[in-house]
């Protein structure tokens, strides 16, 4: 490990990476935006930097500011710890289901304290429920509480490219994962629009949503999308942290583009009866899929 010789280099690299990811999320959104109508354009036209400069503390509610700052700090810690752990360290605590869920539950609870509409409460509770179920499903198929361990795909050879992608074992898990990422990205875009209100807590909400999205993508890359070492760029593998950074960035950008396109092309009308049937079918298929994987694993 070349970069871990001093404390500051990994931290500076990680912060640069986070800023780069936040900017790239904005750029991706700009390129794949749904509507180019005049109405929508005016919503986005107000530039972030001028809005941040116009933020007024007098307009900000102290309660909201305190809640937003608490959430901002805990998510920042969560995200920094997973990025540092992935790129420069080898701490397995950050992949424990309990650890992840504690922080996610806390962050969603703080969102819940700020909600004013009942629909928002429903969204938050749905998100948390799907998050818990997804993490538990990953844990069950990996047969471990530490979901960061690497497993092999049962129907691929050992040294085949993509053989570490757990998602090929349980393809039905892709549906809740996509739901989580789409929900998080939508909330990020929504909070970006709300900077226009010019209160300080909205700015920290926006940053927290961005960090949460980056955290979730990194977590899923590590747990089901093959980790950070599988794309072999010949000749550069020996510089491990930098190789991992390139690997993470490529995967992050691809996943973000896919998620943004999904938001653009997904149907907006929600038929409750139909979605209930789909949810039941997906849950059933997921359970069958998991049982099958566990059966095959225990055969060996």
């Amino acid at each position: 490990m070349i970069a871990t010789s001093t404390n500051l280099v990994p931290m500076a690299l990680t912060i640069t990476l986070i800023v780069f990811y936040l900017i790239s999320l904005g750029v991706i959104d700009k390129f794949f935006r749904y509507s180019r109508s005049e109405n929508n354009r005016t919503l986005y036209k107000s530039y972030t930097i001028t809005n941040i400069l116009k933020i007024s503390i007098n307009k900000t509610s102290l309660f909201s500011l305190i809640i937003s700052l608490l959430r901002f700090n805990s998510i920042l810690y969560l995200m920094i710890s997973i990025l540092l752990g992935n790129l420069f360290g080898s701490d397995i605590k950050i992949y424990e289901i309990i650890f992840i869920l504690t922080y996610l539950l806390l962050s969603e609870f703080l969102v819940f304290l700020k909600t004013k509409k009942k629909s928002e409460i429903n969204e938050v509770s749905m998100f948390i429920m799907i998050m818990i179920l997804t993490l538990v499903c990953i844990g069950v198929t990996k047969e471990s509480l530490n979901i960061g361990i690497s497993t092999k795909v049962e129907w691929l050879g050992v040294n085949v490219f993509l053989s570490g992608w757990e998602i090929f074992n349980i393809p039905f898990l892709l549906i809740p994962i996509i739901y989580i990422l789409v929900f998080s990205y939508t909330r990020l875009l929504e909070s970006y629009r709300q900077i226009n209100i010019k209160t300080a807590d909205r700015l920290f909400d926006f940053l927290s949503e961005g960090f949460l999205y980056i955290y979730l993508v990194t977590l899923f890359i590590k747990t089901v999308f093959g980790g950070l070492e599988d794309l072999s760029l010949t000749g550069y593998d020996f510089v491990l942290p930098y190789f991992k950074i390139i690997n993470l960035t490529i995967k992050f950008l691809i996943i973000s583009i896919v998620v943004r396109l999904l938001i653009r092309f997904m149907p907006t009308q929600n038929n409750k009866k139909r979605s209930k049937n789909i949810n039941l079918t997906v849950a059933l298929l997921l359970v069958i899929n998991m049982c099958f994987v566990l059966y095959v694993r225990n055969l060996h």
Binding site: N7, L8, N73, G85, F88, D91
Partner: peptide
């Protein structure tokens, strides 16, 4: 993780 300066960052 401590050696990576995360405590300082939290503070």
């Amino acid at each position: 993780m401590e050696e990576l300066g995360i405590q300082l960052f939290i503070i």
